[in-house]
């Protein structure tokens, strides 16, 4: 039934807490196969928490999360990765003392097919030639943009069905931001579904097919990306237009 409409990920009324603070107050989100879906919203709206709820780092207290028809609400992070959800976390979180190459290998930690891993490594280097130049360098010594590439590359090494990107443009020079977004579109064209969390709403809505606007732990708006771009309120609040 879920396969019929290509529904890949489904969050239903998810409530997630940090201690006694309710960070998500009932969020429902759908991601269909092949889409780029973006979550936009201000700081503290619950975007990263949503990702942490999905990948098992913070289990929701109420509600359900289903991936490809299977319930993953209380799944452990490693089993979520195994099912095909990889992420480039907020702030990148590379292993600073490991080389670029080792970081990418860590991304493929759950896989055992050496040949496939090598293919994906080549694919990542094709997407980011810069990483190939720096493959023996310690990840902690890369520039911000390179680190972001490494983080995305590392997530791709899991050969995920769903790739979750948390603020890939954060702290990057505009030239890098553009490059990163081009890559996101490219990866999506190669068949990976993407859930994109962004503060840079303009760029995010440009590449996404659908979007959700989060406000203080709830979904304030949900629509096609194009429609959201036209939306009066979104333009005022998130795109800085009058």
């Amino acid at each position: 039934m879920t396969e019929g409409n290509g529904l890949m990920l489904e969050l239903k009324d998810v409530h997630t807490f940090y201690g006694s603070i309710e960070a998500l107050k009932g969020i429902s989100i759908d991601v269909r196969e092949g889409e780029i879906v973006t979550l936009i919203g201000a700081n503290g709206a619950g975007k990263s928490t949503t990702l942490r709820s999905i990948n098992g780092l913070n289990h929701p207290r109420r509600g359900s999360i289903r991936f490809e028809g299977r319930d993953i609400t209380n799944a452990s992070p490693h089993s979520v990765v195994k099912m095909g959800i990889a992420q480039s976390p907020e702030g990148r979180r590379l292993f600073p003392r490991m080389s670029v190459h080792e970081n990418l290998e860590m991304g493929a930690f759950q896989r055992a097919d050496r040949k496939g891993i090598r293919e994906d490594m080549d694919r990542v280097f094709e997407l980011f030639p810069r990483l190939q130049e720096r493959r023996t360098q310690k990840a902690g010594t890369l520039s911000g943009g390179e680190q972001q590439m490494c983080a995305i590359g590392r997530a791709l090494m899991a050969r995920p069905k769903l790739l979750m990107l948390d603020e890939p443009s954060m702290g990057l020079a505009p030239i890098f931001v553009e490059r990163i977004f081009e890559t996101i579109v490219e990866v999506n064209k190669q068949g990976t579904t993407i859930l994109l969390v962004e503060q840079n709403a303009l760029m995010a809505l440009d590449v996404a097919s659908r979007g959700y606007v989060l406000e203080t732990g709830t979904v304030a708006l949900a629509d096609e990306a194009k429609a959201l771009r036209q939306n009066e309120q979104v333009r005022k609040t998130y795109l800085g237009e009058d």
Partner: peptide
């Protein structure tokens, strides 16, 4: 080593 460097990132990688 991944856990020593960054436990949360290691978990996110499927460790």
């Amino acid at each position: 080593i991944a856990i020593r460097e960054d436990e949360t990132a290691a978990a996110a990688m499927g460790v």
